[in-house]
């Protein structure tokens, strides 16, 4: 902190973006408690950041699904590593393609209203969903270790920041796969978004209940995996209403615990 009575824009922004060390962050925090002018300025800066994020998304081009680019990279890497291997990997890459194992979804759902904090539905421009088709046995056998955190801290930071959250409140969000890994969802940035963990009616616990239900339907052969992926990516709330036949979340699902929040 400087010796002026107010925190500078830079100090406020560093605090907002979680770029200060613990000691400095605490000093700013304390100052903000007593300085209404600084709190107001911090809110203006946060608002400016969120408005710029929105502008940036509006100007951004649509990004084609990743599978063609990803197959191209795999093939190039295979050729690059060693020539005998190249043949084998080229074959694998081609057969994977031919079998249509890589399927990714780029869905243009209705756009979110501008400048809204992350809600129960992701921004389709940032998180259109990305998935591949899994064999049914795998959908049936897929067991995710409880509490496993597959997403690296660096990727998590990036996703939160894209959504204008510099420093997530501990326990407030689940860094959720739009299409869950159990349903073929990929570890792609286009398949991840910060979902409010238990705030609001349509929270991540309710979505977890839907994912489990869809997984069982696919496993039992009552639903095509591709359909499940498409519907959950397009509007998971609509999918919930459809598959549970309930306009509002069923009470017990609010307590359904599968994934832990990000802390």
């Amino acid at each position: 902190m400087s010796d002026t009575p107010h925190a500078s824009d830079q100090e406020l922004l560093l605090a907002l973006d979680g770029e200060l060390d613990a000691h400095q962050a605490q000093l700013i925090e304390q100052h903000l408690l007593h300085c209404a002018a600084c709190r107001a300025r911090r809110d203006q800066l946060q608002q400016a950041l969120v408005e710029f994020l929105e502008l940036h998304r509006r100007k951004a081009p649509a990004i084609p699904p990743a599978e063609a680019a990803s197959a191209r990279l795999k093939a190039a890497l295979a050729e690059l590593t060693s020539q005998p291997r190249a043949k084998r990997w080229g074959l694998v890459a081609r057969s994977l393609l031919a079998a249509g194992i890589f399927g990714a979804l780029l869905l243009l759902a209705a756009l979110l209203e501008s400048r809204r904090p992350p809600g129960p539905l992701p921004d389709p421009r940032l998180t259109p969903g990305a998935a591949r088709i899994l064999p049914r046995q795998q959908v049936c056998s897929m067991v995710k270790p409880p509490g496993a955190r597959a997403v690296s801290q660096a990727l998590a930071d990036q996703v939160f920041r894209q959504y204008g959250i510099g420093k997530p409140r501990p326990g407030a969000y689940e860094l959720d796969y739009l299409i869950s890994p159990e349903l073929g969802g990929l570890d792609d940035i286009q398949n991840l978004w910060p979902q409010p963990y238990s705030e609001g009616e349509w929270n991540s616990r309710v979505k977890d209940a839907l994912e489990e239900h869809l997984r069982r339907l696919v496993c039992d052969g009552r639903l095509e995996l591709a359909t499940a992926q498409r519907e959950i990516a397009k509007d998971w709330i609509a999918a919930y209403r459809k598959y549970f036949g309930s306009l509002r979340p069923i009470a017990e699902h609010a307590f359904f615990v599968k994934d832990l929040p990000w802390d």
Partner: peptide, 17 residues
């Protein structure tokens, strides 16, 4: 190779934008 693929999945869309 795995590490490169993982970073590719994470960074392709942001890098394109």
């Amino acid at each position: 190779e795995r590490e490169v693929s993982a970073l590719f999945a994470e960074l392709r869309a942001p890098l394109l934008r």
